[in-house]
Design a protein around this nucleic acid. Structure first.
Length: 594
RNA sequence: GGCCUCGUAGUUCAAUGGAUAGAAUAGUAGUUUCCUAAACUGUAGAUCCAAGUUCGAUUCUUGGCGAGGCUACCA
C-alpha cells in the first residue's frame, strides 16, 4: 500500500469521525516548491459537503494525520491546501525498496495482459525516408516500448506501400533513362537511387506538359495526355495483370529500396515484428464489404458503388467500394485490420500516422465498430503534427526534404565537433569515439523530437540545428555518464538495507531526488495511457535537474561518513538506472563516459 | 462554406480545473586548488481577444482573430 492510499483512507476516517460526512474522492498533488511539504491535499472541494472554513478543516485533518499516521511528521495549511510533511524513515524505506528492485517502474506483462499492435513508419517504396518519417518512427517505436513497460504485450508492424502509380513512375523512369544503373554500380543506397528516378519522372512529365500547353492544350488536358503519364498508367495495369517483365522490375527495384530502408532503420534503432505489404493486402476487405452489405451496414448506389452513411455520427457518406468493384484505401485498411487480429490474437491497435489523416481513421474505426468487432473499441490513431521547415512544408519534388540518413550523419558530426573541443576522451580509440558520437548525436535528435507533445507540429530549422545544451538529450546523457564515473570510483558493494540507514538525516536535495525517483512508475502508466513519450522525456529531465543540483551541492565520495557515502552513491546509481530505463523507452542510448 | 487540430517569455517547449504560469535557449551577473563546467547559482522576460461556467480557468463552453490540416470512385 503506498502512502497516498494510506493518507486517502485516513483523511476519510478523519472527516467521518469529526464531521460525520463520507467523502467519495480526494485530490492529492505534489506540494509546490515554494511551500514546505511533500504531498498536498486540496480541501476546497470538500467544503461543499462540510460546513466550515478551509483553514479549520485543514487543521483538523492535519492533526488527525499526525496522531494516526506514522509517516506523517507535521503539516501546514495555506488556504484550502493541506501540506503534509513526511518523515525521513518513510523516504529511506521507500528508496531501499526501489534500489533493490529489478526493472523498477516497469510492469511485466502477465498471462492475461492486453495485446496491442503498434503500426508505424509505413513508407512508400518510391523515395527515401525523410524527417517526417523520423518523427513517425521515433513516436511509434517509443509508444510501443512504453506500452510494453506498462504491462502490455506489444507487436510492432509497418505496412509497406509497395504498389501503385507512384512506384510505376520510378520504374518507368529507370527503365527509360537508367542505363542499367544499380546501387552497386552507383554506390548509392537503393532507396536513394529509386528516389532519384521518381524525381526524374516528374521532371520529364512537367516538360511534356508544358510542351503540350505550348501546342495549345489546356493545362488539364496536357496533364492527362502527356505520353509518360499514360505509360505509367499502362504499367500499373500491366502490374495488376501480372505481366512478368513488370513484376520482375518491380521486385528488383523494391528490393533495392528495402535494403536502403533497412540501413536507415538500423541507424535509427527501430525494428518491427512483422511487415505487411500493400501488394498482399490491397485486395483484402472486399468480402467484409460484401457481408456488411447483407447486414445493411453498407448500401449500394445505382452505379454499383458501395457506401456507408455516417451522417448520423456527424460525418459524411464514405465510399468503400468503387463502381467497378475494386477496393479503395479504406477497404484495404478494413481488411488489413481484420487480418492482423487473426494473425496475432491482439485486442487493440495503435496507428502512428500524421494528423492529415485524422478523418480517415475516425471513419475507419467507426466502420469497424459498426461491423460489430469487439476490438474496434480499442483502436487508437496516434496522430502527430507535421514537421515543417522555416520555408514551409517539405516537398520531395522541390528538393526541400530533410533526408533521414543525412540528418543523422549531421548530428553525429556535430557531436564529434563538440566532443573534440572538450577533449575528455583522448584515451578512447577511434571506434569507441565514433560509437559515442553516434549515441550523442542521435540522442540529441531523438530527444528534440520526442519531448514535444505528439499533437503539436514541429518547426525544424536545419540552420540552427538541434541543441546539445539545456533541456536536451546530451544533457541527460552527460548526467548519466557522471553517475557512472562516481560508481566506478566508489568500489564497494551497493547493497543498501534499511537497518543501516534508518536514522539517517536526509539532506533536502536527497529528499527531492527520492521524491522524483518515486514518480517513475506512475509516469510510465501515464505515458502509456496518453500514448505520449513526451511525458517520459519531461520526467527524465526533471529527475536529472534534481540530480545535478544534488551533485553540485552535496559531496558524494568526499564524505567521511561511510553510511552517508554508501547511501549517496546508491542514490546516484538509482537515478542512473532510471535514466537508462527511461531513455530506453525513448529509444535513446546512454554512454559510460562523454 | 463545413469539419478537425493548434495559439503560453524574443525563440523552442512544460503546466490534462488548483497556490505567486515552470524550464531551456538567447540576454545579463557569478561559480573550477573539490566526485566530468555538455554542469551549477542569481537576474530579467509570456497565457491571441471577448463573454460564460466555477470557491478557483492556460486548461471547460460560446463567439471572434491567427496558423495548419481534411473535405477524391489517390494512397
Amino acid at each position: 500500500m503506498n502512502i497516498q492510499n494510506i493518507l486517502d483512507k485516513e483523511v476519510k476516517n478523519a472527516v467521518e469521525e469529526t464531521y460525520g460526512v463520507k467523502l467519495e474522492k480526494l485530490e492529492f498533488q505534489p506540494t509546490r516548491k515554494d511551500f514546505e511539504g511533500d504531498i498536498t491535499l486540496v480541501t476546497f472541494a470538500m467544503l461543499k459537503q462540510i460546513k466550515t472554513n478551509p483553514v479549520q478543516l485543514g487543521q483538523t485533518i492535519g492533526n488527525y494525520l499526525v496522531a494516526n499516521v506514522e509517516e506523517v511528521e507535521r503539516f501546514n495549511v495555506v488556504q484550502g491546501f493541506l501540506n503534509i510533511v513526511l518523515s525521513d524513515p518513510f523516504y529511506l524505506n521507500a528508496f531501499t525498496e526501489i534500489s533493490s528492485s529489478e526493472n523498477f517502474g516497469r510492469v511485466k506483462s502477465g498471462e492475461n495482459a492486453e495485446a496491442i499492435m503498434v503500426e508505424y513508419s509505413s513508407p512508400n517504396t518510391n523515395k527515401p525516408l525523410h524527417l517526417g518519417h523520423i518523427r513517425n518512427n521515433l513516436l511509434g517505436y517509443s509508444v510501443a516500448e512504453i506500452l510494453k513497460a506498462s504491462g502490455k504485450e506489444v507487436y510492432k508492424t509497418q505496412i509497406i506501400n509497395d504498389r501503385g502509380i507512384h512506384i510505376c513512375k520510378s520504374m518507368l523512369a529507370w527503365e527509360r533513362f537508367g542505363n542499367g544503373e544499380t546501387p552497386e554500380s552507383t554506390e548509392l543506397k537503393g532507396d536513394k537511387l529509386v528516389g532519384n528516378y521518381y524525381v526524374k519522372f516528374d521532371k520529364v512529365y512537367k516538360e511534356q506538359v508544358s510542351q503540350l500547353v505550348d501546342e495549345g492544350k489546356t493545362e488539364e488536358e496536357a496533364k492527362i495526355e502527356a505520353p509518360i503519364i499514360k505509360e505509367a498508367q499502362q504499367m500499373l495495369l500491366d502490374w495488376e495483370a501480372g505481366k512478368p517483365e513488370v513484376i520482375e522490375l518491380w521486385n528488383k527495384m523494391n528490393q533495392w529500396v528495402y535494403n536502403g530502408f533497412e540501413k536507415t532503420y538500423k541507424a535509427l534503432g527501430v525494428d518491427f515484428d512483422k511487415n505487411y505489404y500493400e501488394s498482399d493486402t490491397y485486395l483484402l476487405g472486399k468480402d467484409v464489404v460484401a457481408q456488411g452489405l447483407e447486414n445493411g451496414v453498407f448500401y449500394k448506389k445505382e452505379d454499383g458503388s458501395v457506401w456507408i452513411d455516417l451522417t448520423d455520427e456527424g460525418l459524411d457518406e464514405k465510399i468503400v467500394l468503387r463502381s467497378d468493384g475494386t477496393s479503395v484505401y479504406i477497404t484495404q485498411d478494413i481488411g488489413t485490420a481484420i487480418q492482423r487480429v487473426k494473425d496475432f490474437d491482439i485486442n487493440g491497435m495503435v496507428y502512428t500516422v500524421g494528423n492529415e489523416q485524422d478523418y480517415h481513421f475516425k471513419v475507419l474505426f467507426l466502420i469497424l465498430k459498426k461491423l460489430g468487432f469487439e476490438w474496434a473499441n480499442n483502436l487508437f490513431h496516434l496522430s502527430y503534427g507535421m514537421v515543417d521547415l522555416p520555408s514551409g512544408k517539405m516537398k520531395s519534388r522541390e528538393g526541400t526534404v530533410v533526408d533521414a540518413d543525412e540528418l543523422m550523419e549531421q548530428m553525429t558530426v556535430t557531436a564529434r565537433t563538440i566532443s573534440e573541443e572538450l577533449g575528455k576522451l583522448e584515451d578512447y580509440n577511434q571506434e569507441e569515439k565514433e560509437e559515442l558520437y553516434r549515441i550523442i548525436g542521435l540522442g540529441a535528435l531523438k530527444y528534440y523530437i520526442l519531448k514535444v507533445d505528439p499533437k503539436k507540429r514541429i518547426l525544424f530549422n536545419p540552420e540552427e540545428s538541434v541543441d546539445f545544451q539545456g533541456n536536451t538529450g546530451p544533457f541527460i546523457q552527460y548526467t548519466y555518464a557522471r553517475i557512472q564515473s562516481i560508481i566506478r570510483k566508489a568500489e564497494f558493494e551497493l547493497d543498501l538495507n534499511f537497518e543501516e540507514i534508518k536514522t539517517y538525516q536526509l539532506h533536502e536535495k536527497e529528499k527531492e531526488l527520492i521524491k522524483q525517483v518515486q514518480m517513475y512508475p506512475e509516469t510510465i502508466q501515464q505515458a502509456a495511457e496518453n500514448h505520449s513519450p513526451a511525458l517520459i522525456a519531461n520526467y527524465t529531465y526533471d529527475l536529472v535537474k534534481a540530480f545535478n543540483s544534488f551533485y553540485q551541492n552535496v559531496t558524494i565520495l568526499g564524505t567521511k561518513d561511510e553510511t552517508e557515502k554508501k547511501f549517496r552513491v546508491t542514490l546516484s546509481k538509482g537515478v542512473g538506472d532510471i535514466i537508462e530505463s527511461a531513455f530506453g523507452l525513448l529509444g535513446i542510448g546512454v554512454p559510460e563516459r562523454m
